[in-house]
Amino acid sequence: MAESMYEPDPQAMPTMPVASGPPVIDTSRLWGGGLATALVAALVAWVAVLVSQAVLNVDLLTPPNRGLTGASGTVLYVFSAGMGALIATLILQIMVTLTPRPLAYFGWIIGLITVAFSVLPFTVEAHVVNQVATSLSNLCVGLVILTLLPKVGYSTIRARESSPPEL
């Protein structure tokens, strides 16, 4: 009687499905969602530039104008926001492929990158109002990426077909 108390009955134990590898990713939908997120992030950056310059009369701390390309600092800033979302999509795909809880790790990585880019304007010499405006703009872009891409991940990541464990 005492032995049965310490050893579970295999017939009474529920069978737990065993994953046969990393989850399956619908990469076309993942990158479609990543492109849509990049567009939203770029638009948020553009709106931040418009609000700061037109409404608040404050310049964001953007890269200087480029001589050969003729690209303005604000165009590079908006483009960088969109590229940041595409880089985040790549990070999400890598996390899904290599880690056990990809969306948790992704959230931490993108959250910390967002904090870093929000603090970064305070590391250069500029007027405080320019630093604050740039910091808030970077925070808004980061929050867009941090809120949209995990939802894309949830909708594009599927568990592999599982099989019952061998006894």
Rank of each mutant, 00 (worst) to 15 (best):
T69C: 13
V129E: 13
A48T: 07
P150I: 00
A88Q: 05
A116F: 12
V128N: 06
A71R: 15
Q131V: 00
N130H: 02
M13A: 15
L139H: 07
V75P: 05
F117T: 09
S137A: 15
A42V: 00
Q53K: 14
G107F: 14
S72W: 11
P165V: 11
T27F: 15
D59A: 12
P121A: 07
M1C: 00
P22Q: 11
L120D: 01
L56F: 15
I25Y: 05
R158L: 10
M16N: 06
V124S: 06
P102Y: 06
P10K: 09
N130G: 01
E161D: 10
A38Y: 05
L92E: 08
G82N: 07
V75E: 14
Y105T: 11
S72L: 13
W108Y: 15
M83A: 12
I91S: 06
G142I: 04
S137I: 00
G32F: 05
S4A: 12
I91M: 13
A71M: 15
N130W: 00
M16H: 12
G84S: 13
L136E: 08
A71H: 14
T123A: 11
I145S: 02
L92G: 01
Y105K: 14
T62C: 01
M16Q: 12
T62W: 05
P17E: 09
N130R: 06
N138P: 03
L35N: 03
T97A: 11
G82C: 09
A54N: 07
P150K: 03
A104E: 08
A159C: 01
L86Q: 01
A48Y: 04
T114Q: 11
L136S: 07
